[in-house]
Structure formats: structure tokens, C-alpha cells
């Protein structure tokens, strides 16, 4: 979007709005003043419209980029895996093996239980989240402008970094949460899982005291359980959202005269170099925490079991 034609606030807001596709009810007054005669599935034309679509809307850009980048990961790694030989590795194979070996040794250290799914999940998370974060380094206006040009709609919303959308990060965290519960129940049984929630951390060994402690334990355990996926999703979102915001602010400075242009160039470069670290680190943190949560779900408190 051309900075001259709109205010800085508009520019920022435009960059922070996803391409929402959802249903607007009949009689709804759209952003351009027209009134809908019947409920319609359509792209949101303003932030207000996107908000009014409610829960039953999807962010086409978030899903599109995340699925596309996920497919890049799948294609690249499965291609390397199919072509892989036990001989001397070259090029793509050695890169893929480097990443795989790194993840494998890390998961072996943090996850001592038997579950063949955890290591591949860690690999998927690390590479996929990294690729999604990497989109943050593409200058903020390139892809939205290209998309606007291709679609012919100059006001098209287009966010290219899926991890700056809380839906994406919390969605992944939600899946991790579901797996945590699934593995907890599978490893300890429903009863074991409930015991873990109610007889922990306060535990006396006398049943009447334990009965009294159940509400406190339950409250503490549920909060700590639910806090895990939320903090997991929001950490990634917050880091990337803040990074994206700074890139947008720097992009605004590009329009402020020659001096602004030169300054913005320096700032953009500095922030991008720093951000290379952030995106790798955040992908790594998401992966490690997921592995740790999986280990906790598999962990059986032997001492606790004996006390029962």
C-alpha cells in the first residue's frame, strides 16, 4: 500500500488484518455502504467486517501460507528421505540429515520414553515453524502488493507470516495440548490422569485430608495444565507479532524523505539480522517445549503411585 495515500494508522491496520473469509448476515452494512440483502460468504473488506464474521470465518492467508510452507517441508524432506543412501551424503541429503540428527539427539535427551511419534513431531515443528517465521524476513510490502496486483483488489488484506496470527500458533498449541491429554490418558489411564490432577501437588497420605485437598489440587493442576498450551502459542505469536510490528514501523519510516529512507534502510537491516536469531530461537523453543510437555505426559510419578 502506498504510504502517501493513507495515514500511518491505516497502513499499520491494513498490515495487521488477515484475509478473512466468512459469512456476513442479511441486512449487514458493509464497509463501502452497501447493505446485504441476504447472508453472504465473502472476503472481509474491513477490520470491522472481519470481526463481525465471528468464529465461523477462516484466514485464507494464514492457512494458505502455513499449508504451503508445510508442503515445502514435506516435499523437501520426503524427497531427501527417498533419495537418501547410506553412502557419503551430499547436498540436500546432508543438510536434511544434519537437521534430523540434531533433532533426534535432542529428543533422545529430553524424552526418555518410548514413542516413535515425538521425534518426527519435533522435526516437523522445528522446520515448519522456522519456515513460517522466515516469512517475516520478506520485506513487509512485497507479497501484499504482489497479491493486490494479481487479484486486482488494491485493498486486499494479505498477511504472509502465519505465526503472527494467534489462530495459527494457538491452533498448533491446541493440537499439542490434545496430544498431551491423549498420551497422559493412554499412559496412566483415565483414573491415573484424574489422580494426577487431584492428588497433586498436596498429598498427605490420609484419605480424609486428601479429600479436603482435592479442590486446591485440582485448581492448581488445571491452571498449570491449561497454561502450558496457551503460553506455548502466545510466546511464539507475541515474539513474531512484535517483530512484524517493528518491520511495519520501519517500513513507514522509508517514506519520510531521503534521510528517513537511509535511516530506515539501516534499521531494517539491523532488525532483520537480529530477527534471524529470533525466528530460529522461537522455532527451537516451540519444539523443545512440545517435547518436554510430551515427556511430562508420559511421565509416571512412581513415588506417588506407591503412596496410593
Amino acid at each position: 500500500m502506498a504510504v502517501e495515500a493513507q495515514t500511518a494508522t491505516d497502513y499499520i491496520q491494513h498490515h495487521l488484518q488477515n484475509m478473512a473469509y466468512g459469512k456476513l448476515p442479511a441486512g449487514y452494512t458493509r464497509a463501502d455502504g452497501t447493505v446485504l440483502s441476504e447472508s453472504t460468504w465473502t472476503l472481509a473488506h474491513s477490520t470491522q467486517e472481519a470481526a463481525d464474521m465471528g468464529f465461523w470465518a477462516v484466514h485464507l492467508d494464514t492457512l494458505g501460507w502455513s499449508i504451503g510452507l508445510g508442503l515445502v517441508f514435506c516435499f523437501l524432506f520426503s524427497y531427501a528421505a527417498r533419495k537418501a543412501t547410506a553412502g557419503v551424503p551430499h547436498g540436500l541429503q546432508s543438510f536434511v540429515e544434519l537437521v534430523t540428527g540434531f533433532i533426534d539427539s535432542l529428543v533422545k535427551e529430553t524424552f526418555p520414553h518410548r514413542n516413535s511419534m515425538v521425534a518426527p513431531m519435533a522435526l516437523t515443528i522445528f522446520v515448519w515453524v522456522f519456515l513460517m517465521n522466515l516469512m517475516d524476513l520478506v520485506p513487509v510490502d512485497w507479497l501484499p502488493r504482489a497479491a493486490a496486483g494479481v487479484s486486482g483488489n488494491p485493498h486486499l488484506f494479505f498477511k504472509v507470516v502465519p505465526t503472527t496470527d494467534p489462530n495459527a500458533t494457538l491452533g498448533m498449541a491446541l493440537a499439542v495440548f490434545a496430544l498431551m491429554i491423549f498420551f497422559s490418558v493412554r499412559e496412566k489411564g483415565i483414573l491415573g490422569f484424574i489422580k494426577e490432577l487431584t492428588l497433586h501437588p498436596f498429598h498427605t497420605g490420609k484419605w480424609y485430608f486428601d479429600l479436603l485437598l482435592i479442590p486446591f489440587n485440582f485448581l492448581l493442576e488445571v491452571v498449570s495444565l491449561v497454561a502450558k498450551p496457551i503460553s506455548l502459542g502466545l510466546r511464539l505469536f507475541g515474539n513474531l507479532y512484535a517483530g512484524e510490528m517493528i518491520f511495519i514501523l520501519i517500513a513507514i519510516v522509508f517514506g519520510v524523505g531521503v534521510l528517513g529512507f537511509a535511516g530506515a534502510m539501516l534499521m531494517h537491516m539491523g532488525w532483520a539480522i537480529f530477527h534471524v536469531l529470533v525466528i530460529t530461537l522461537q522455532a527451537f523453543v516451540f519444539m523443545v517445549l512440545t517435547t518436554v510437555y510430551m515427556a511430562m505426559a508420559h511421565h509416571r510419578d512412581e513415588e506417588h503411585e506407591h503412596d496410593q
Binding site: G22, V58, G70, D165, N167, A168, G171, M172, L174
Partner: peptide, 16 residues
Amino acid sequence: NINLTLIGQSITFLAF
């Protein structure tokens, strides 16, 4: 906004 994308992303994640 939190919307259906959340579920879509979860399913995508599990699929990958």
C-alpha cells in the same frame, strides 16, 4: 480474531 483458522491450523499441524 480467533476463528475457525484455529481448528484448521490444528488439523494441518497434525496432518504434517
